[in-house]
């Protein structure tokens, strides 16, 4: 992708990978919501679900696309940030341009960096352990990811880090989902407005959904 220097094409890639990742968040949330089931049921159900995903060839392909999207989205962000820095010139001494736009729309790279750092921890603690670590088996013979998750969210600092990352993700989505549609060329005034509000609703549902789970586990398990 590095040979594509054109910013508009790079932005399209950014939008498409971003939208795919946003779609993935919905699926991931549905998976996580199984953690809220009654304890005995949750353990077997969650471990069964995790194993189901791990064995499915279709899911494996989607997972590959997912990794690719995370990498391309990140590389594209770095490329465009460097480009923007070059285009800006020396900048202003007195700068009050912030009055004209939302703070999170101007700080997508910062918010994205928080999310990326969180992803590194998230992958290390759960994804790596599940794929390559030695996990005990549950009653049904599935890898016991459930206990690993519960143990992690038993620590207050972990819950706090998780919540901060999800809030950063929330603001990233609030601008990102709407911006992606504009980048891809949705210029109809009404549909553009509808997508903006749908994006807001989606963001609120995702943010609350992901935040409830660790709090629930911390308080109840």
């Amino acid at each position: 992708m590095w040979y594509v220097k054109n910013a508009l094409t790079r932005k399209n890639l950014m939008a498409l990978t971003g939208l795919f990742l946003s779609f993935f968040l919905i699926i991931h949330l549905f998976g996580n919501l199984q953690l809220l089931l009654p304890e005995a049921e949750a353990k077997l159900q969650y471990n069964w679900y995790s194993d189901l995903l791990a064995d499915n060839i279709l899911i494996k392909i989607i997972a590959m696309v997912l990794y690719l999207c995370i990498i391309l989205h990140t590389l594209d962000a770095i490329y465009l940030t460097v480009k923007s820095k070059k285009a800006k010139g020396s900048g202003y001494v007195k700068d009050r341009r912030g009055r004209a736009s939302k703070w999170y729309s101007r700080n997508m790279m910062f918010l994205g960096s928080i999310v990326f750092l969180f992803l590194v921890i998230h992958f290390k603690d759960f994804w790596y352990q599940f794929k390559f670590g030695e996990l005990p088996l549950d009653a049904n013979g599935n890898k016991d990811l459930y206990t690993l998750v519960i143990k992690a969210f038993d620590q207050l600092w972990y819950v706090i880090v998780y919540i901060i990352a999800i809030i950063a993700l929330g603001y990233h989505l609030l601008h990102g989902v709407f911006s992606a549609h504009r980048t891809l060329g949705l210029y109809h005034p009404l549909y553009s407005k509808i997508v903006k509000y749908l994006g807001m609703a989606y963001t609120i549902i995702m943010t609350i959904g992901y935040i409830i789970i660790p709090i629930f586990i911390y308080l109840n398990r």
């Binding site: 465009l80 923007s84 341009r97 009055r99 004209a100 729309s105 980048t183």
Partner: peptide, 17 residues
Amino acid sequence: EEEGFGHCTNTEACQVE
């Protein structure tokens, strides 16, 4: 692009000002 302008991130500050 060739003139060295940056890309658009849809902050919409341009329309406001």
